[in-house]
């Protein structure tokens, strides 16, 4: 049997990145995304992808991991590579009977592929390597509404619980020789599974809330975070700012 892993597993960042302030890492990922989606020229986009790959490596993503996380993009990109060259007018690059594929359309599809992958890699490397709870605290410090942060922190906690519950229910189904097929019986069974998942989990949520109230929980967490801005963070922020400015200048439309 497969080793049971929790679904929310952050990658382990290298020492340098791990000591950077979580807020800086979130803001850097957002700034990188903002600059990258605005880039037009391919060399600048390639540089963005290289920077994102470096961020992913600093965030502890292995090559296999990175490729696996980029795989979900493949479906949409395949559709875009198939349709954009036919739709964007321009110099023909390939002609098949009445259809002509334009170079401009192909370039547009490549631009989208580079932008999408670069943003995903940078996001996984800079933010995905944070502990989910630290991420919640950093989001609170960045000014997100308190209730939303509470919801975030509870959800992080319950994902592990529910995933465990889900695996137990799946195992119970397997023990009764359930094999998922493409028929109404399977779908109905999965519907009952979803219902059971909700019933058991909400029951557990009630018990957890009761236990927390018992210990004096009055609806609020006290954030016991130790986010502290170091001198290294200022240097990293300046470095990231300069790099992004350079990227922006390189990528301006000619």
């Amino acid at each position: 049997m497969r080793v049971a892993t929790t679904p929310l597993t952050p990658s382990t960042a290298g020492d340098w990145l791990a000591t950077r302030d979580a807020r800086l890492r979130i803001l850097a990922a957002v700034a990188f995304a903002l600059v990258t989606v605005g880039l037009e020229r391919l060399p600048a986009l390639l540089l963005a992808l290289i920077l994102a790959a470096a961020a992913a490596a600093a965030g502890g993503l292995t090559l296999g991991n990175a490729l696996r996380r980029l795989a979900p993009l493949a479906g949409l990109l395949a559709i875009l590579f198939a349709t954009l060259p036919l739709m964007v007018p321009g110099t023909p690059w390939l002609e098949l009977g009445p259809l002509s594929a334009s170079r401009e359309g192909l370039l547009e599809a490549m631009r989208i592929a580079l932008k999408a992958s670069a943003v995903v890699l940078a996001m996984l490397g800079l933010v995905g390597s944070l502990d989910p709870v630290t991420l919640g605290h950093a989001l609170a410090r960045l000014g997100l509404p308190d209730k939303l942060v509470h919801l975030f922190l509870f959800t992080v906690r319950y994902i592990d619980v529910l995933h465990g519950e889900y695996r137990r229910l799946r195992q119970a189904l397997r023990a009764r020789a359930f094999v998922p097929r493409s028929d109404a019986h399977t779908w109905r069974t999965l519907g009952w599974l979803v219902g059971m998942l909700l019933v058991r989990s909400l029951e557990r949520a009630r018990r957890v809330t009761a236990a927390m109230k018992c210990r004096g929980f009055a609806g609020h967490f006290y954030r016991l975070d130790q986010l502290a801005w170091h001198r290294g963070d200022t240097a990293a922020a300046l470095g990231a700012g300069a790099t992004l400015a350079l990227l922006f200048l390189l990528g301006r439309p000619a």
Partner: peptide, 20 residues
């Protein structure tokens, strides 16, 4: 909030189920 979080988590976990 705990109840809403359970459902957000259920939504997350259910999106991992591949239905044939």
């Amino acid at each position: 909030i705990p109840q809403a979080a359970v459902l957000a988590a259920a939504f997350f976990v259910a999106s991992l189920i591949a239905v044939p």
